[in-house]
Computed example of a mutant assay.
Amino acid sequence: MDEALRLHAFASPQPGARLVVLGGVHGDETCGTVAIERVRADLESGRLALRRGELTLVPVANPLARRRQRREGERNLNRSFQPDPRPADYEARITNRLCPVLARHDVLLDLHSFHTDGTPFAMIGPRDNSGPLEPFHRAREEGLLALHLGTDCVVEAWLEVYAARLARRGEAGDARALAFGWGTNEYMRSQGGYAVTLECGQHRDPQAPEVAYRAILASLALLDMAGEPPPPRRPPRLLRLVDVVDREAEGDRLLRDWASFDAVQRGQPIGLRADGQAVAAPCDGVIVFPNPQALPGTEWFYLAVDSDRELRA
């Protein structure tokens, strides 16, 4: 029997922004769930009042993966995130339930955590453009939301790097392969909204739920839905993803316990293939999302460089 999806909706009599917050897109990422349940309790007790707009809270977006206490139920929910008239797995059925929820909102905050040590960071989409990959016209609003989430780093250009990965693998013209790269944020942007993913810290970091909780409150305040905006912080470092390296075999291994934003220099060995061949950094930059447990054929680590983009309040 399929696991049921639980949503909590709050609506003010006063019109305003429509925000949806997701937790537990991956079953082993619990910080968003804890934070969402805390905000729900605040609203239901009256400690927090929704003065305008609509708020939908989804504590566990992938109930099957959560019950199994692993990243995926049957596959990664944050891929192929588009309606499917013939859903073939649990995640496709959940996607069909979540897509209409996202489509009727203006803003998405998607709360995640990561495998290895590292500091929290936000992820945003493309700059305003009318190109074929991911046309978008709300980059300023999206960047403003990222600025208010309180992280020291903001990372851009996920889908561009994913498309380049497909090109290297000879799948550049495969629409299904590109569609597989779509997650919650890409779908939200395709529906006219905007979205930020917040990586709140390592899975078991006791501070990660607090990072997620503060981010929800900051989002509500920025959108004039509830609470007061936090004091301004120094501008975050803005990074642009430029490469992704796949783990190809079980014998592939990283040469150290890398953490997101560890610096690397061009030519520096990062890992070893199963046959002993070194995997070296193609440029100066930083590691993002190192995953020593990545399955063969999936993303092993990303590389990023400083971006020339400016995010302005």
Rank of each mutant, 00 (worst) to 15 (best):
131 G>E: 15
132 P>L: 11
123 M>T: 11
124 I>S: 04
147 L>H: 14
123 M>H: 00
114 F>P: 03
141 E>V: 07
119 T>D: 04
128 D>N: 15
118 G>Q: 03
122 A>H: 02
142 E>Q: 14
113 S>V: 05
117 D>Q: 08
142 E>M: 14
149 L>A: 12
124 I>G: 01
150 G>L: 08
122 A>E: 11
119 T>S: 13
119 T>N: 01
131 G>V: 01
129 N>T: 07
133 L>M: 07
128 D>S: 10
113 S>A: 15
136 F>G: 04
116 T>R: 08
145 L>C: 12
130 S>T: 10
132 P>M: 02
123 M>P: 00
120 P>Q: 00
140 R>V: 13
113 S>E: 08
118 G>K: 05
131 G>C: 06
128 D>L: 07
144 L>I: 15
133 L>H: 13
118 G>V: 03
147 L>D: 12
150 G>S: 15
149 L>M: 11
121 F>D: 03
140 R>K: 12
125 G>Y: 05
134 E>M: 14
130 S>K: 00
117 D>W: 01
116 T>N: 14
142 E>F: 10
146 A>N: 12
137 H>M: 08
138 R>S: 12
120 P>T: 02
136 F>I: 06
125 G>N: 06
137 H>R: 15
135 P>C: 09
144 L>A: 15
142 E>H: 07
149 L>E: 09
